[in-house]
């Protein structure tokens, strides 16, 4: 599964909505339940799902879902195998 597909699973789980289809330009405006709190839950779920960990410096520069996907990919590449 691609990062995008896996991320889609996380989004559906966190926002409890099976109709969500993530796209690169998606922001909190596109999902009703996406507020500052679910944002933290979302990032935590992403960390758990991909078994990575973000620094606060990294999460402050996430203007949209595309930026989050890039960050996940970078983190996965850095991860020791």
């Amino acid at each position: 599964m691609s990062v995008k597909d896996e991320l889609n699973l996380v989004f559906r789980e966190v926002f409890k909505d099976d109709s969500i289809e993530v796209f690169r330009e998606m922001t909190e405006i596109d999902i009703d339940m996406w507020d500052s709190f679910s944002h933290a839950t979302l990032l935590m779920s992403v960390e758990d799902h991909f078994d990575i960990s973000f620094a606060s410096r990294e999460i402050m520069n996430l203007p949209n879902v595309g930026a989050l996907m890039d960050l996940i990919e970078r983190k996965l590449a850095e991860k020791p195998r």
Partner: peptide, 8 residues
């Protein structure tokens, strides 16, 4: 957001 993230 940083406060919430720190406490996630």
């Amino acid at each position: 957001r940083p406060l919430n993230f720190a406490a996630r």
